[in-house]
Nucleic acid binder design. Structure first.
Lengths: 249, 249
DNA sequence: CGCGCGTTTGATCGCACTCAACCCGCGTGG
DNA sequence: CCACGCGGGTTGAGTGCGATCAAACGCGCG
């Protein structure tokens, strides 16, 4: 029995609105979406490989990842999703799961039926465009990760990820002046960067020794954002922080 | 002055129709899109980083890549596009270029104005869905590349790419029973796999020695597809070769 | 108290990089 | 006709980044 949860949906709406211009009807359509709340433990699967799903997952709290896996058990995190992200929005048009979804930390997510999302996309072309555009942000992020993993040193990779996550957390108001809480373990970070946890640890040490960051538990403080961006050649343009009105009304 | 080129557009339509169900009107709308033909030399830029573009690029002939680049000049190919692919379809909703597009070999492409694509997407929700879904194929491919580059050995990476390209060329009827022409140089392949050309060459040698493939010039023949899939753990599911009718009419 | 997970550090290993040379085929120009 | 340059492919020798293996530590929790 679907519920409705305007609070959680407004975080998603905020993410969408950051990149697309919507009018009142369209906003109301999003906020009225039916929702089913779920709580998941750390390391618990949310959607499994090969399933055919009929709902998308919006992250309300916690940290969620999409995973690739080799038969020898090595994992590669394909994408990280923080609160406000619809981790699965692409599944609306691609319901056969080729990349599973798992909670990295205890998380609360809400499920939104595909039919409801398809209905408002069909009724409001600007919403369809906004959803499509939102998925393209993930694509742009993955392209940068590909560049990082393919061509950057371990230290630059880690610095790049920290720059990206700091900005993304800042967008949702979870990055104070110079620090943010990043609940991923060094194991998770290794899986995201194509490195081992041991080497991630050493690279954290290197960045600390360079005076660029400080780490206390899961709390990361950035002492020198310029420097961190410099070692990783970080350019935030790919995160596309500007609202476009692409739908000619 | 836009033209129309139903021949080239029908290759794109074929790609779309392989994954989405469209009706007669929707098909006609796609085939009636305005086009501007372009010829580009090998290694010539098609769209540059930072530009804001107002058209998408459909590959008619040749091989086209999207690139990431570090300041030291190292390149990472983010995606490869073969004839029938709209290399740039995502630019319809994401016109600020964060990943440049370049021809790897002499290619002919046709440009299609964003306004025309947006118009038919707004008029035909099923077309909007189909376009969105098409972009999600690219996303799924990039996810697999991320897994390959992050976690697989050089040999497995190469084998995986060959499996993927063989299937993609087969889809467009350019892969005879056991061989296909893959016009990328070993340098390009290295840029796609996050390897050096030298090492790509050695891995080609290894796959040849294993009796899995033969290479003559740019012609690749697959002697043992099972074996090639086995060493790379290739599972074609991510290419999503099945048409879904997602738009409830 | 003991256990488990995550972090930290050290020692050694090996895959892929780097540097370097040479081959071949092709197009260009003398 | 040959000389030459150039891009791409091939092979060898040596190097180094990040993996692997291993051990210990800190901390929260049952």
């Amino acid at each position: 029995m679907p519920d409705n949860n305007r609070g959680a949906l407004s975080a998603f709406l905020a993410r969408i609105s950051r990149r697309s211009v919507l009018d009142g009807d369209e906003i109301e359509a999003i906020l009225s979406l039916p929702t089913i709340e779920h709580r998941v433990r750390a390391n618990q699967d949310i959607v499994r490989l090969g399933e055919r799903i009929d709902h998308a997952c919006l992250v309300v709290e916690g940290l969620v990842g999409r995973f690739g896996q080799t038969s020898s058990g090595e994992r590669q995190i394909i994408a990280l999703h923080i609160p406000g992200d619809m981790a699965d929005l692409h599944s609306v048009v691609s319901p056969l799961v080729t990349v599973p979804l798992q909670a990295l930390t205890a998380s609360t997510i809400i499920r939104i039926p595909h039919v409801a999302l398809r209905k408002i996309a069909a009724r409001h072309p600007a919403v369809a465009t906004a959803f499509w555009r939102d998925c393209m942000i993930d694509l742009a992020i993955m392209a940068q990760w590909l560049l990082s993993i393919g061509r950057r040193s371990a230290k630059a990779r880690l610095a790049h990820l920290l720059c990206e996550m700091a900005l993304r957390y800042e967008q949702i108001g979870a990055c104070s002046s110079e620090g943010f809480l990043f609940p991923a373990t060094q194991n998770h970070i290794g899986d995201a960067l194509g490195l081992t946890a041991v080497h991630v640890n050493r690279m954290f040490g290197a960045l600390k020794r360079d005076g660029l960051i400080d780490v206390k538990g899961r709390e990361i403080t950035i002492n020198d954002g310029k420097g961190l961006a410099a070692v990783s050649e970080f350019d935030p343009a790919y995160l596309q922080f500007e609202a476009l009105d692409l739908h000619q009304r």
